[in-house]
């Protein structure tokens, strides 16, 4: 992907300010600091080197030491007064502050929490007036004090220990699995554990509210360097079967919360939701919950499968004299 021009401009100016404070810094260190490749560092420096005040003659341009660059180091010789660090724009301050406040909502009272609070204080100083807009934003965390499962998973992540879970899948199967934890994700409401499941021999997403019991084993977790973490709270639905649901307007809230769903408007406020389904049990849970807010499901074999499940359930009520 091509980097947007404002992002690159911001980084080049940040780099000038950084190099003012850090003379003769190895290219490798700059690349780590700004989280870009060494090739990109050099490309940025080459651009800065030919930039300057109109005229663009020697003396008008930002200048670096070529002798140092030959030794893989960067030294700024002339910044053309472009070495002031840039202040945060209101949009940048709000995006970072609201993210920090959201993080705070997911943490228990401990050192981690006070570190985030400190960071918020520093960021407010840095942002000045730009921080004002963040005060109008409230993030509601649905934290249950009694739930110690996230804390135990974090402990295992920090120590690199393996976990033993008793887990209820979407299809209501309870299994015991040994899992090497890779990442603990939350969307502010629910928690998800991404881990290498030794039972499934692959990466799996686990909803923490479906973990009945979690034990930190006295055994180190294996390293899984090949696993690429997507950072998504839902499993990858790109290669899933595409299912189309026609939903009543009342179910709009539901369609809106699915990250990869496509919504199109139909007549009279009905909408069509197209969503990738990996696990039919997941779809079944959703369609049963929505009930009469779903008026059609495609493809037909999926619709028939769901209908058969529902009929079987209604029959059970009937034989017990409850329906």
């Amino acid at each position: 992907m091509i980097e947007p021009a404002p992002d690159r401009l911001t980084r080049m100016l940040a780099m000038v300010a950084y190099l003012r404070d850090n003379p003769a810094v190895p290219v490798e260190e700059v690349s780590e600091h700004f989280r870009i490749s060494e090739k990109q560092v050099i490309a940025d420096v080459q651009t800065l080197w030919v930039s300057g005040t109109p005229g663009y003659m020697h003396g008008d341009l930002i200048d670096f030491s070529s002798a140092d660059l030959d030794h893989g180091m960067l030294t700024l010789l002339d910044s053309r007064e472009m070495d002031r660090p840039l202040r945060l724009s209101p949009g940048e301050a709000v995006a970072l502050l609201v993210a920090l406040q959201s993080l705070l909502g997911t943490l228990e009272a401990n050192d981690e929490r006070s570190l985030v609070e400190e960071t918020i204080a520093v960021l407010r100083t840095a942002a000045g007036e730009a921080a004002a807009a963040a005060d109008a934003v409230e993030v509601e965390g649905r934290r249950r004090e009694s739930d110690d499962r996230p804390a135990r998973i974090k402990e295992a992540l920090a120590a690199g220990q393996r976990l033993r879970l008793r887990y209820v899948s979407a299809s209501d199967q309870t299994t015991e699995r040994d899992v090497d934890p890779l990442q603990l994700l939350t969307d502010g409401q629910r928690w998800f554990l991404v881990g290498w499941c030794h039972r499934a021999r692959g990466v799996r997403h686990f909803r923490v509210d479906r973990i009945l019991d979690v034990q930190v084993l006295d055994m180190p977790a294996d390293a899984h360097p090949d696993v690429e973490l997507t950072g998504r709270t839902e499993p990858d639905t790109a290669r899933a079967e595409q299912v189309r649901l026609q939903l009543a307007s009342r179910a709009r809230w539901f369609a809106e919360q699915l990250p990869d769903a496509q919504i199109s408007e139909l007549e009279n406020g009905w909408l069509q939701l197209t969503v990738g389904v990996v696990d039919i049990a997941w779809l079944s849970n959703i369609v049963m919950a929505l009930g009469d807010e779903v008026r059609s499901v495609e493809p037909p074999d999926v619709a028939e499968l769901l209908a058969a499940r529902a009929r079987a359930a209604v029959d059970d009520y009937a034989v017990m004299g409850l329906a």
């Binding site: 911001t10 100016l13 950084y18």
Partner: peptide, 13 residues
């Protein structure tokens, strides 16, 4: 994008 740009600016100092 805004959050990433803000982070880049803070890396300068």
């Amino acid at each position: 994008a805004s959050a990433q740009r803000g982070l880049t600016k803070l890396r300068a100092v």
